[in-house]
Every structure is written in structure tokens, then in C-alpha cells.
Write a protein that binds this DNA or RNA. Structure first.
Lengths: 239, 239
DNA sequence: CGCACCTTTGAGCTCGGTCAAGGGGCGTGG
DNA sequence: CCACGCCCCTTGACCGAGCTCAAAGGTGCG
């Protein structure tokens, strides 16, 4: 899936959909390729936002730090995903850090040249606005969830979202195909690794998931949906 | 502040900044005016997003409902603010409801005509992307706050944000110039009206704020900043 | 095979949610 | 102008979900 020619990848990217071939080619000409080994960063929170990235291979975690050192994991993305789009606005700093969860590759555009492309091909502007509108909605919704729902439900939702975004079908179910520690899951759902561990193990005994080191396999999504949606008494842990 | 001619208001709106006069005039020609009495809605969550609004008078609360009936207050906005911008993306439903907190007036554009204006005047596209990038950042940050900080700190931040956005200088300090119940504040910060009431009263005895029915006056912003930022032992309530 | 890091599990505690009761401001109608 | 009633707000008591801290397993890599 990484061996496709760049032009094919671009064509499938929401930001560039509906562009005429000449525009696509201009986009491609302005693109630079880049690599990032597992554990290293495409950019750091606070860096001037000068590039917009498109991931072509690997996995990237987008995290935001607190002044006090704790952090949250805002998104975990796979190939075909655009990130760092904040650089489309001028004069911003990256609000997050982009860390490779595995060896990754991507292409990027300089902010100025992408802005120029937007000015020249306004269809891209509409695409970009759709993308960002979607992003705003996602975070508004997650904000609401965090404000009003308990941990168990948020974790169920997070797993379902991950399974649908970066899931890979395996024998036992849907493997979340990126190395995710309990700590990472805690940072995505606004809780602690201890609570995540407890809930996951509870679910494992119920047959909903299979656990491993930095691995979760969702065996029975329907059960998670039941937890996420409503039914089902909040279910305290009792030995 | 509501008696300015529309053209002046448009000129000051971020979305239209940097447009040449002809473009501004086209924008103005496409605008429709509208009114909304206190307690009524510009639009409801789930309605097809067909209009983008610019508030010219009054106050509007943007809220999102849970399936279970509880809700969160995502933004409280005043004159000059654009809302419903999700309509710039095609085929979306409004993810929030927009309720007038007092008698309000605004102008709106149909989604299609605004999209057309964007296509014709790409500077607007860049402006729109800046706006939405800012919005994404705001919610990412609030998500992080909600995930990692305790209520007291979140409430302090919320008050400071409100004071700077919709604050009005009065004798005793900065009045948050919109009728906000304790419940509203709770919905903004992801807590309950009881906790908000307790914390505010604690602050009042410390001289940080002055309270009234649906009113908060910030007397000593610096003290709130101290609560919001770090220092200062978490301070449990003790009679 | 040893070290680093991830994970599990237990015990205790606390922040803040829940529920109940009552006080008080403000508009409305008599 | 007063009285009623609605809603907003306060305060107390209780308690429980989930955080904190500590101590051991596991697991994989060098």
C-alpha cells in the first residue's frame, strides 16, 4: 500500500479530490518526501507551522503536552491522513507534536506554496474547509463525551474509533494495528493507565477483547457498542 | 455598537478581512438579515447546515446535546462572531444548537452562495481556513484541559476566557456580559452546578469575584490566573 | 540473561457527583 | 403595591468512581 505512485495517493486524498489533472500535477511538483524513524518526530509542539504533511507509510501519534508535563494523545493516524494542516493558517505554531509510532514516510508541502496552490485552485479551499469542519466537529463531540460520560464508555468509543480507523482483520477479530500502550489509551480518553488496565482486563474476561503487550484485538465490537451506547448497568468491578 | 452600517461590520470580520471593496460589496449583497428573540434558536442541532451566520447584536449560546438529554455549552458568543461555519462544508448537519441568550440580530448567507464567494475570492478561503484552524486548536486545548485538569482550574480558565471575550468593564471589575446560570458554567467546564456554586462562593469570600443571579463579575483576574496556571495548593474547602 | 519498560493488582483516599432541603431574586397578576 | 410562584442559587450530607501510590509479574530486546 506504500508502493503506489504518489499521484495515485494524492488523488485519493480528500484535500485534493475533484482537482483537474493539471492542478494535481502542480500539487505533486510542490511536494517533498520525508522519512521518520520510529520514536522520532515530524515536528514538535511549538515549532513554527511551516509544513503540511501527508502520511504515506507507517503510523503517527499526535500529542499535546501540558505545562506540567502530562500529555494527551489527540489522534493516531495512518497512511493517507493529512496532518499539520494548521500550517494552512499563517503565522501559527504547531499545537501538537507528531511522533512516529513506527518507521514512517510521508510527503510535505511548504505552507506558502500550499497557500498559493489554494489561491490558484479554489476547489482545494472548499476541500480544506470540509476537512477542518470535520475536525472541529470531532473535537467538539469528544469534548462533550469527556465532559459527560464515564471512563468505561469513553474507552469503548476510543477502541471502536481506533478499530475502524487503523484496524486490521486477523483470526481472532480486529487488531488495532499500531503499538498502543495502556498509557496511550489513557491519554486518549482522559484517564490513567491503571483504570484502562482494569477495564480492559474486565472486558477480556467477558470475551470482548484479547490483550497483549501494546496490543488490543477487538473480538466482539457489538459488545463494545453496547458499552459505548447506553444499555447495560455501569457495572462496578467485583471480585 | 449595533448601529454601524453593515459594510463596516463586515470589514471588521476576520472572514472578510483583506478583501477588495468590490468583493466586500458582493458579500454584502448576498447577506440576509435576521432576528431571534431571547430563548429562541437560530438553528437546532441536526438541522441541515444551510446558512452561515454573523451575529451583529445580542448574545448566542452554542450547545450540544447528549443522547441522554444532558448537554454541554461549547461557546457563548457576542457581536462580530461568525457561527454555523460548518455550513461551509457541504452536506453537513449543524452539530450544535444556537440559542439566543438575549434578543439578538444577525445576518446570514446561504451555504451555496458563500461557497461561490469563496471560489471567486480565494482570500476568503485563506481567512476561513485560519478561522477554522483556530477553532480546531481551541477545542484540542479544551479537550486537553478537560482530560488533565481539575474543576477549579477549568472554571478559572472559563471565566477568564469569558471575561476577555464578552467582558464589560464596570465599577467593581469586569462583568461577564451575558446571562449565565451556574448550570451554564457547569456545562462549559464539564461539571455540575453544585460544584460551580461551591467554588464560586469560595472565590467570592476570597475577593476574587462578585456574584449575582446569572451574573459573575471578575474583580481580581490575577487571582484567577493564579488558580488557572499552577501555583497555589489545590485548596480543599474547609469550614 | 539482565535490564528496561509495559502491565497487573491491591489498598486507601479524595474529588466531585448525587440527592435533599431551603433561601432568595424577579416577574406577573391581582 | 403586594403576594404568589417560578426559577436560580446555596448548603449540607453522603458516597462512589476513579486517582494515587506501591509492589510485583511479564515480555522483549540488546
Amino acid at each position: 500500500m506504500t508502493d503506489l505512485p504518489l499521484s495515485d495517493i494524492l488523488q485519493k486524498t480528500a484535500l485534493f479530490s475533484g482537482l483537474e489533472p493539471a492542478a494535481l500535477q502542480a500539487v505533486q511538483l510542490a511536494a517533498h518526501t520525508c522519512q521518520s524513524a520510529a520514536g522520532s518526530y515530524f515536528f514538535l509542539q511549538g515549532d513554527p507551522a511551516e509544513r503540511v504533511f501527508l502520511l504515506t507509510r507507517g503510523r503517527v501519534k499526535l500529542t499535546q503536552m501540558n505545562p506540567d508535563g502530562s500529555q494527551v494523545l489527540l489522534r493516531a493516524v495512518g497512511p493517507g491522513t493529512l496532518f499539520g494542516a494548521v500550517a494552512l493558517a499563517q503565522g501559527e505554531l504547531y499545537p501538537v507534536s507528531a511522533e512516529s509510532a513506527e518507521d514512517s514516510g510521508g510527503v510535505y508541502w511548504g505552507a506558502a506554496s500550499l497557500q498559493e496552490l489554494v489561491l490558484r485552485h479554489p476547489q482545494m479551499a472548499l476541500n480544506a474547509m470540509s476537512l477542518m469542519a470535520e475536525r472541529v466537529q470531532e473535537f467538539q463531540q469528544r469534548f462533550r463525551e469527556l465532559a459527560t460520560e464515564r471512563v468505561e464508555r469513553r474507552l469503548a468509543r476510543a477502541l471502536l474509533r481506533l478499530a475502524s480507523q487503523t484496524g486490521r482483520k486477523v483470526a481472532e477479530g480486529v487488531l488495532i494495528d499500531l503499538p498502543l500502550t495502556r498509557q496511550d489509551l489513557a491519554e486518549m480518553t482522559g484517564t490513567t493507565l491503571f483504570t484502562v488496565s482494569r477495564i480492559l482486563n474486565q472486558w477480556e474476561t467477558r470475551g470482548l477483547v484479547t490483550l497483549g503487550r501494546e496490543r488490543v484485538i477487538v473480538r466482539f465490537p457489538h459488545g463494545l457498542v453496547a458499552v459505548a451506547e447506553d444499555l447495560l448497568p455501569p457495572q462496578t468491578s467485583q471480585p
